[in-house]
Computed example of a mutant assay.
Amino acid sequence: MQVVIADDHPLFRTALSHAVGKVWPEAEIVEAPSAARAREALANGAVEALLLDLHMEDSNGLSVLMDLRQDYPALPISIVSASEEPRVIAAAQQLGAAAFIPKSSGLDVMRDALSAVREGDGWFPDTGAEEDADLAHMASLTPAQRRILSSMREGLLNKQIAYELDISEATVKAHITAIFRKLGVNNRTQAVLLAGKLDVDQPAADALTQ
């Protein structure tokens, strides 16, 4: 049985390993410095839990959480992040995280949060933030639709998206129509602006350690 720690800061992975070792003493701890490496671990082992940072070399924001929840719906995913704004914490909870552990927390708090997750409970700081209907709409997108929406955010045209994803331009248009319907928008600009809610600003202190 494994617990995967996905964080691109080696020192923080070490600190998390100590907390995990107290809660899952029998587990093999797998450290992953990127979202891609975390996915490799999830595909190759019997993973009990995933601890996930929101800012890594190949991921930034809540999109990675949404994708992993889609692919591994039964896996408890605990967000461990320096982005501690109430909006971010509430969004992570709404998108299916099992816990949100601020990086400013002490080891005792981390152990308490992970113990709750192991028992099947959630653990989140009290923010008072309300659920966002737009996030629920985005969570309803299929993986293919999310990839196309991501390409739209990069400014790619339908023909370019079709080439990048190796699908027909007609298929791209059909997906975009479905995206607009699910998100309740009328055009690409509105869809791109709404998808911006998945972005999470990287704290300055965290950025300095990159």
Rank of each mutant, 00 (worst) to 15 (best):
E164Y: 12
L183I: 01
K159C: 11
N186L: 10
I161G: 12
A191T: 01
N158V: 05
T171P: 10
L156I: 09
I179L: 13
F180T: 00
L183R: 00
E169H: 02
N187G: 13
I167F: 13
R181S: 05
Y163K: 10
R188D: 10
A178P: 03
S168T: 07
K182R: 10
V192W: 06
A178F: 00
G184Q: 08
D166E: 14
L157C: 11
R181I: 02
L183V: 00
I167S: 09
V172W: 04
G184V: 01
L156Q: 14
V185E: 01
A191Y: 02
N186C: 11
R188G: 05
V172K: 15
N186H: 14
K182F: 00
D166W: 08
T177S: 07
Y163F: 07
D166I: 06
V192M: 04
V192Y: 15
T177E: 14
A174P: 11
T171G: 14
T189Q: 13
A170Q: 15
Y163R: 14
E164N: 14
I179M: 10
N186S: 06
N158F: 10
R188V: 02
H175L: 08
V172D: 09
K182Q: 00
N187Q: 11
V185M: 15
I179G: 08
F180L: 04
R188W: 03
E169Q: 15
I179Y: 11
E169P: 08
V172A: 07
K173G: 02
T189D: 15
T177Y: 01
R188Q: 12
V192S: 11
E164C: 03
D166Y: 04
